[in-house]
Amino acid sequence: MAIKQLKARILENKKLSQDFYKMRIKSLYLARNIKPGQFIEVRCSESLDPLLRRPFSVHRILKDSIEILYEVLGKGTKALSQRKSGELLDVIGPLGSRFTLNTKRYPLNAILTAGGIGIAPLVALAEESAKRGNKTYVIIGAKTRSRILCETEITPRGCDLMVSTEDGSKGYKGLATDVLKDLLSTLNSKPPTIIYACGPTAMLKTVAHIAKERKISCQVLLEEYMACGIGVCLGCPVKVKNGTSGYEYKMVCKDGPVFNAREVIW
């Protein structure tokens, strides 16, 4: 679908907790055309500092608007958190690759594994997956209770929600990947299972390993600093396997952000 630069009206920019915000912007074009896994490049402010656009995965796709979920980590997200509803936001999208789902005729066990803010793109995927009749499991892992996001958005969609915290303040005490292993041991091979994951690199690496050991297909959404977000600057490389020379670089913004976990050199 054609990439467009749009001025989208901010409908809501809500603080969820300490550093997490959710923003809803009006755009019929993006709502109709963006797919789970894809992202938009946002001009957080009109200033020269911060200057570059910031990439945000689509968090939810609504009728004539979309949502992004973000954590305030630097100048860009700080500026974004100060934007008010009613203002126009300069965005470019839809960008990047999407998660691949099944067709309705062949349901799956879809396991969505999120680490921290990695839940952001997986909510859109959970909604789409449930719509396609998949048995959809969502595992959300975080350091502590206050960093667990989106529980209330997962359960009403008929998805099974599992929560883990490293300090045991909520749900299972341990890592999301431990929960994933336990879950996999209870599932049958029919229908087939696919794992989708987004989160810190260490978590994704473990998820990829778990999937490979069990010969389960796995798609990961990667993050990298970006400048252009469209494939021009070659600033966001990820090392992937290449038959002849061992490895090559692909760009997270254009070839990804969704990659087959087996392709990635962790």
Binding site: L51, L52, A227, L234, C236, P237
Partner: peptide, 23 residues
């Protein structure tokens, strides 16, 4: 040329540093 190892870009005050490495 395969270019340099990531990270290849970082934003600085009103600018950016890049080390793409002529990929």
């Amino acid at each position: 040329r395969s270019g340099n190892s990531p990270p290849r870009i970082v934003e600085t005050a009103s600018g950016m540093l890049n080390s793409i490495g002529l990929e």
